[in-house]
Design a protein around this nucleic acid. Structure first.
Length: 950
RNA sequence: GGGCCUAUAGCUCAGUUUAGGUCAGAGCGCACGCCUGAUAAGCGUGAGGUCGGUGGUUCGAAUCCACCUAGGCCCA
């Protein structure tokens, strides 16, 4: 007998080419290339040609800059949904899109070209903008594809494509024709730096230092008439407070709250009027030793429509009433400039005041204003304060820091300024009401999304559509030069739309009105033939808002309405909102059946990612270091409905989880090297109980995952798969079955049964993980044995839970067995760690007993399986246990009536299977193997036996 | 300042809604040990949380109410 027998040659050890190390960053591109080669996206659609449609409509990212974690998160979530719905049996097309027009691109182009606004023609700027957008689309497309996102990347939708531009114009004209569009002067956010009106969405509130001044307005003659007798000979002033001194030249009114009590107080030799509720605050602000005494009370309604004199201009200021005046700050007397404030504007309308805004688009005062004419408004603040001082009208000046609107693009402070703008009315055609009705019918996930968008729609003002810029789709409106009326009927615009479809929206700027209007057009109002075209362009939110018309309705593979829109929760005010208004306004219904939102990417401490905090992690970095797969796993592991944390620790943990899943699958592949499912698969009903129990657990996992996919709860899937790999497979089934897999005859029933479980588990898990771990699933798929599998895992369907009912008795029994196993394991650990009796569990013999008859009977009935489950060499059940010196006695913790005795297993170690047995060596050749192994060797390794005996 | 949302072990999540009383859990990580026939792998055991804080309702609250703190999105 030879001394060194290579028993490894007589075992079924795992064999696989599937690498332990994923090398994701390097291998992923190979899979991407292959998917492209086989045109996976279209193949997936063809596999589901006759299936029900599931349409997830892509919200277009802005074609500017590299993708970031937020956009990556969004696209991966969409990809998981598209892939999982496909696996669920739906035909689920995915057409990605880009938002291409708008101010940010225009500004960047100006920066690149080093030109200022207006220096180049609109057409030239537009040409450059188009190229710029194209450039970023191509970059972002590659970045998105790198994430493993599948879709119609070669044929995406672009809001700047000619047909899309035509659709935008057409939908605008729909609104125009139904009388929803109007034009009027209105205060809007205005950025003097970018020289444009801004939408609410384009304004950001930032802390800002402003002067805080108290200004005295002397009462005019008519106001004295209503003053109490004792004030008639005094110098009386109304005191206002403002943080924008530059708006004082536009002051036309002072607003009082009709509900407040106003008082006149004496300060030095002057009388000041203010709200009683602000008196002590003012005294504190002025640093007075004591609150000035009240000399009279004033009823605000007495002063209504009386006047005060402007503090430095020869003009009067109307005293008005308004209920928005508060006692939170100031004096309760509010400086009102209808051309420079939203509420001021409304008050101005009510009192018939001029909407006066003597400020140029660039932010310079009109020349005709004394002293400060021609100066920039923000620079005029100090001069106005000086003038007030000189005129003796300044009561107090200080500085405050407060939240002030800033331009989202240039980050500079914005102003309110009255200008001519185009609007879609929220009330015309009941747009607001209908939108609110549709909100009720849509499924919002999470449910609170409904309240959120509802309150926004309820409160939002009319939609300001116009932008004084170049890069966008023009507001296609013809205006009569004679009477000022604009043409509303669709018939006037058919020619324009046809031209847009063919040549894009540039033609609006290229061609003369006469070339755009149908021949012989006459103003229906005044009969004139003299028209001009509107020069403003449309708000980009309108562009993306009509994507349902440009994409869902126009693409053959899609449908209107979509099943789902999925974006960040900020889009309740953005795309969900604009899409809803556009669709309700023109189609009479919402463009989606359901809306799913995700939170924002924040750092490990829950703080938002920002350049200034320096906590930004770009997707590219994660892909390079860990692979896109880890990024995808991150997306899937987190509950994205809240904010989603990202940190190095989180990525490290995910990498570990990934490795566990990968290695578990690798082990299964390695043990299926000789398994031919078509031939070797053991029918479910013939499987031993343990195998059936594991498949039952697998079935539960499958059910749970299918439901979680259905509900878009991917973190349930991820945690479920990971836990199943780590516990049910790796720690339980694989650990226990290793002996069977390695040591039994290759074709034996018991080994094939164990392999059957591995095969089912592997194929199920691979398909379950495919929407998330798309690369790894594909890699595994290639190694899975069998002929009848799809070319790509992404063409396969989800597994079905194949064991749904085993009976409660069966489950109870197995849960009890696993509980007993856990107790044995604890006893073994004591023997190992504290008593050093054993190392490997196979070195142990276990004797069990129980305090209750019932448990004792159960133990006796399951003695053999318990030995198997516990992975010990010998296990028996006794009525009574008397521990010896070198033995461990353990009483159950979870099962107190269970008692476990551990001692060293008797006999010798079988050199082949490493189990200890008193029968080792009892064979003809005197091999140091146990009878089981000897039998197996005779059965399946005769060649090997010959070779070692020679 | 207002609306909406979030807060459970170092990390990611269960448990909270359409019943408040085995609900204080899982996996990972960590510590310690074992194995060396999944090996830059595998197995086991263990230590970790007054469920963001403070009050209140209740016989009893992570779970209901109020307020506060921190953070996020949106708005002013």
């Amino acid at each position: 007998m030879s001394e060194k027998i290579e028993w490894k040659d007589a075992l079924n050890l795992p064999r696989t080419g599937f690498p332990m190390k994923a090398n994701l960053a390097k291998r992923e591109p190979e899979f991407l290339k292959w998917w492209e080669e086989i045109d996976l996206y279209h193949k997936m659609l063809r596999y589901r040609e006759n299936s029900a449609l599931y349409v997830l409509h892509d919200g277009p990212p802005y074609a500017n800059g590299h993708i970031h974690m937020g956009t990556a998160l969004n696209k991966v979530l969409k990809d998981i949904i598209v892939k999982s719905r496909h696996k669920n049996g739906f035909k689920s097309p995915y057409v990605p899109g880009w938002d291409c027009h708008g101010l940010p691109i225009e500004l960047n182009v100006e920066k690149e070209l080093k030109v200022k606004r207006g220096e180049l023609s609109k057409l030239t700027i537009r040409k450059h903008c188009r190229e710029y957008a194209e450039r970023w689309i191509n970059i972002q497309r590659e970045e998105f594809k790198r994430l493993g996102v599948i879709g119609d990347w070669e044929n995406p939708y672009l809001t700047m494509s000619y047909d899309y531009e035509a659709t935008i114009a057409r939908e605008f004209i729909n609104f125009l024709a139904q009388g929803s569009v109007y034009r009027r002067k209105k205060t809007v956010f205005w950025c003097p730096h970018c020289v444009t009106a801004l939408a609410e969405a384009e304004v950001e509130y930032e802390p800002h230092r402003s002067p805080s001044i108290y200004v005295k307005f002397p009462l005019a003659e008519d106001a004295y008439e209503v003053l109490p007798e004792e004030l008639k000979n005094e110098k009386v002033f109304i005191v206002i407070w403002t943080t924008t001194p530059w708006t004082l030249p536009a002051n036309l009114a002072i607003a009082l709250n009709p509900e407040f009590k106003y008082v006149a107080v004496k300060l030095n030799d002057e009388v000041l009027i203010l709200a009683e509720g602000r008196l002590s605050a003012l005294a504190a602000e002025l640093d007075l030793e004591k609150v000035p005494s009240i000399v009279a009370c004033i009823k605000p309604e007495d002063l209504e429509r009386k006047h005060a004199r402007h503090p430095f201009l020869t003009r009067e200021s109307l005293i008005v009433l308004a209920d928005y005046v508060t006692l939170e700050a100031g004096t309760g007397c509010v400086h009102t400039a209808p051309g420079h404030g939203e509420e001021d504007y409304e008050t101005g309308l009510r009192y018939g005041l001029d909407i006066y805004a003597p400020v140029s688009p660039e932010g310079f005062f009109d020349e005709d204003i004394p002293e400060i004419g021609g100066k920039h408004i923000f620079k005029a603040n100090d001069e106005i304060i000086e003038i007030l001082k000189r005129e003796g009208k300044l009561l107090h000046v200080s500085e405050i820091e407060h939240s002030y609107p800033h331009c989202w693009r240039c980050k500079k402070p914005v102003i309110f300024r009255a200008t001519e703008q185009w609007f879609i009315s929220m009330e015309a055609n009941n747009l607001r009401k209908k939108a609110l009705e549709w909100i009720e019918k849509i499924r919002w996930i999470p449910h609170w999304g409904k309240n959120r968008i509802k309150s926004m729609i309820e409160k939002r003002p009319d939609w300001c559509l116009s932008r004084q810029r170049s890069w966008g789709v023009p507001l296609t409106v013809f205006i009569c030069n004679q009477c000022g009326e604009f043409l509303k009927d669709k018939k006037y615009y058919e020619k324009v739309l046809a031209l847009f479809e063919e040549k894009g929206a540039d033609v609006w700027f290229e061609k003369d009105v006469s070339e755009l209007l149908p021949e012989g057009t006459i103003c229906p109002q005044c009969g004139s033939r003299d028209f001009r075209k509107e020069e403003d362009i449309l708000d980009v939110w309108f562009d993306s808002g009509v994507s349902f018309a440009a994409v869902l309705e126009r693409r053959e593979e899609l449908k209107f309405p979509a099943d789902l829109y999925l974006e960040g929760s900020d889009q309740h005010r953005g795309w969900f909102h604009s899409s809803l208004l556009c669709a309700v306004g023109t189609r009479g219904r919402a463009p989606y059946e359901a809306v799913l939102t995700h939170g924002f990417v924040v750092d490990g401490q829950g703080r938002k990612m920002s350049k200034s905090l320096g906590n930004v992690i770009p997707p590219e970095k994660i892909i390079k270091r860990y692979g896109a797969e880890i990024l995808r796993l991150w997306v899937a592991a987190e509950d994205y409905r809240d904010d989603i944390r990202l940190s190095d620790e989180i990525l490290k943990r995910l990498t570990e989880a990934y490795r566990k899943i990968r290695n578990t699958c690798r082990f299964m592949l390695g043990n299926l090297y000789d398994f031919v499912p078509e031939k070797d698969l053991v029918p479910l009903e013939e499987l031993p109980d343990f195998e059936r129990y594991i498949l039952f657990r697998l079935s539960k996992l499958i059910s749970r995952c299918l439901k979680a996919y259905e509900d878009y709860e991917f973190h349930i899937v991820t945690h479920g798969i990971h836990q199943f790999c780590a516990v049910d497979l790796s720690a339980v089934f694989i650990d226990i079955s290793r002996d069977t897999l390695y040591c039994e005859s290759p074709q034996s029933f018991s080994r094939r049964a164990a392999q059957t479980v591995l095969y089912h588990a592997l194929t199920a898990i691979t398909r379950l993980m495919a929407p998330i771990l798309s690369f790894t699933a594909e890699e595994i798929w290639r190694y899975i044995p069998g002929e009848n599998k799809e070319e790509s895992v992404h063409l396969a369907s989800f597994p079905e839970p194949f064991i749904t009912e085993l009976g409660d008795d069966f489950i109870d029994k197995w849960e009890k067995l696993m509980g007993i196993r856990a107790e044995i394991t604890k006893a073994l650990e004591i023997a190992r760690k504290e008593r050093k009796i054993i190392g490997n569990s196979l070195e142990a013999e276990v004797i069990l007993t129980a305090a209750s008859e019932e448990l004792l009977a159960f133990l006796k009935a399951n003695q053999d399986i318990l030995a198997y489950l516990a992975i010990v060499s010998k296990l028996s059940v006794a009525e009574k246990i008397e521990p010896q010196e070198d033995e461990v006695f353990y009483q159950g913790e979870e099962i107190p009536e269970l008692k476990v005795l551990v001692k060293r297993a008797p006999g010798e170690k079988c050199e082949r299977c490493w189990k200890w047995s008193e029968e080792v060596g009892q064979n003809e050749e005197g091999l140091k193997v146990c009878p089981r192994c000897y039998k197996v060797l005779k059965e399946s390794w005769q060649e090997f036996l010959k070779s070692i005996s020679s």
